[in-house]
Design a protein around this nucleic acid. Structure first.
Length: 440
RNA sequence: GGCUGAGUGGCAGAGUGGUUAUGCUGCGGUCUGCAAAACCGUUUACGCCGGUUCAAUUCCGACCUCAGCCUCCA
């Protein structure tokens, strides 16, 4: 099995050679639960879910960990605004995230750790980094000393000195080097916090992932994934922390990053007001349509999300479900689908292959690998049944139209068809019989 | 300013040193009372300029445009 992955660390497409081919270990940065997940959050979830499905198809065991970040200043703000406890916010949005992911056919990872359940492990890791003299204490903050880590900047291909000359942000006074980052910071009484050897406080942003990888997967893992925006500083810092705590050279063997998502050609941002949540999209489109839309661009490229992409995806899915009507016995994944996936997860090419598969069972099995065609043809056709008319009324009108057609009163027959059309019902005359379906 | 990525036909989107991607849409046709569905056909594609080559959209170099990152946004 030749599985190739583009590795951000080496900037090359490499042959995937697992640390242990009996058990693959992958970690993906999960959501910060302070608001509804938007479509940009859904992209990595769907992409790495597809990777997870592919790996499970190849290897005997895959351990997939995706965390939930439930300690964050944005959460604190959201809680303060509503005058509710922080747990109210994190629990609410964790539940919504899970619902959204289910709708997009995203499988649950094997572990989904929360920061609040792993504080002891985080403290232990920070202590080890301090013991190894890779961090220092200043003004009640524990800061990682980036000058102590010679690989710093390798993942993001950055030279710290060059970056600093162009820096546009004020540097906190307690930092020795402007690039140093917080491992632990003090909390006020109204902020979430835990007792630690360094006083009441909370972990910095990056340490949680390092700690959870260590706890649930070990010191070194095969694949670490996330959005491109996390390359710097988040992933760069994770490498520095983990290697410094472990006295090791390597943390993740392969780094995979998905491209950005734009809305109708524009960056999705609060200021432009074009952020669209998964929940909003699900009101208008089936989760499978959204999933297909997200997979229709290669994961490393920017995706231009919008109405036309969704409509196109809907058409493709209709076509695929329509193709599920022959009886067949071949029950294997199509080579034309799995081979593109094995080549750095080329989902667009795999999808185009799906459209050529004639054998239903092969089609289902192949599409399932992408998390698609999860329902039967009947279930699909009857979903999104948005006609305002009852089935009985529709049947009666069809009978009336039949009578009109038999008596060659085509004007009346067409009038009835138009009437049904306005109620989203489309008629098809096949072999002397009239069948109807709801517009999708 | 530094870094990273992208630029393919009406749209979406693969791929390739010389031969059809694929899908959607549009147009034409077969079929139909008319439609729908199905099937068939179909329109100049590869940002710009050089270079390498018998041949470049594909390799190399410069340039242009767009997007993003540069301390907590997937």
């Amino acid at each position: 099995m030749n599985f190739k992955i583009y590795n951000t660390l080496t900037k090359e497409k490499e042959l995937f050679q697992p640390l242990d081919d009996q058990s693959i270990k992958m970690y993906v940065c999960g959501p910060t639960v302070y608001s509804y997940a938007h479509i940009g959050n859904a992209r990595p979830a769907v992409i790495f879910d597809t990777l997870y499905r592919l790996l499970k198809n190849i290897y005997p065991e895959v351990i997939y960990v995706r965390n939930i970040t439930d300690v964050d200043d944005k959460i604190n703000e959201a809680a303060k605004k509503l005058n509710k406890p922080i747990s109210y916010i994190t629990e609410k949005y964790t539940d919504i995230y899970h619902e959204d992911m289910r709708s997009l056919s995203v499988l649950s990872p094997n572990h989904e750790p929360r920061v609040t359940d792993n504080i002891a492990q985080i403290i232990s890791m920070i202590q080890r980094i301090l013991d190894n003299k890779k961090a220092y204490i200043n003004d009640n903050h524990i800061l990682f000393d980036i000058t102590s880590f010679d690989q710093y900047g390798k993942l993001s291909n950055r030279d710290m000195d060059e970056m600093l000359s162009g820096a546009r942000v004020e540097v906190a006074e307690y930092k020795k080097t402007p690039g140093d980052f917080v491992l632990w910071k003090p909390s006020n009484d109204d902020e979430p916090g835990w007792d630690s050897p360094w006083g009441f406080g909370r972990p910095g942003w990056h340490i949680e992932c390092s700690s959870m990888v260590e706890t649930y997967l070990g010191k070194e893992i095969d694949i670490h994934g996330g959005g491109q925006d996390l390359i710097f500083p988040h992933h760069e810092n994770e490498i520095a922390q983990s290697c410094s705590a472990h006295n090791s050279k390597r943390y993740a063997k392969y780094w995979m990053h998905n491209g950005y998502l734009n809305m109708e050609g524009e960056k999705m941002s609060k200021s432009l007001g074009n952020i669209i949540t998964v929940k909003e999209l699900l009101e208008k489109y089936d989760g499978e349509v959204i999933r297909l839309a997200l997979l229709s661009t290669h994961y490393r490229k920017p995706i231009n999300f919008g109405e036309s992409l969704l409509e196109q995806s809907k058409n493709i899915l209709n076509k695929l479900y329509k193709n599920l009507n022959n009886q067949s016995y071949e029950d294997v994944v199509s080579k034309d689908v799995i081979n593109p996936l094995l080549d750095d997860l080329n989902t667009p090419l795999a999808i185009s292959s799906l459209l050529k598969i004639k054998c239903s069972k092969t089609l289902i099995k192949s599409a399932n690998l992408l998390g698609l065609l999860n329902r039967t043809q009947e279930e699909w056709l009857s979903s999104n049944n948005k006609s305002t008319m009852s089935e009985n009324d529709i049947e009666l009108l069809i009978q009336e139209r039949d009578r009109a057609r038999k008596s060659k009163d085509f004007a009346k027959a067409d009038e009835i068809r138009d009437q049904l059309d306005q109620n989203n019902v489309i008629l098809e005359d096949i072999d002397g019989k009239t069948i109807w379906r709801v517009k999708k």
